[in-house]
């Protein structure tokens, strides 16, 4: 009974840690795909580049 609970405990912590790590990795990957572009007024602009989607809607 207690072993089963200890296993559940480790499972919950494992899920949480892996979930947070996965979220951080996904977010890190998104930010490293930013391009620096000099816009019309000479101001720098950042936009997200999405590998999967080549629609113009991705661009600001």
């Amino acid at each position: 009974m207690t072993t089963h609970l200890i296993f559940t405990w480790f499972l919950v912590i494992g899920f949480v840690v892996i979930g947070i790590l996965a979220r951080c990795i996904v977010r890190f990957n998104k930010t490293t795909n930013h391009y620096r572009v000099v816009g019309f007024e000479g101001k720098e602009d950042f936009f997200e580049y999405d590998d999967d989607d080549n629609d113009d809607e991705n661009y600001k």
Binding site: I6, W9, V12, V16
Partner: peptide
């Protein structure tokens, strides 16, 4: 939920 699961380790261990 996460905090209470870890907080229960006093009883568990």
């Amino acid at each position: 939920f996460v905090a209470s699961v870890i907080g229960a380790s006093g009883y568990l261990f």
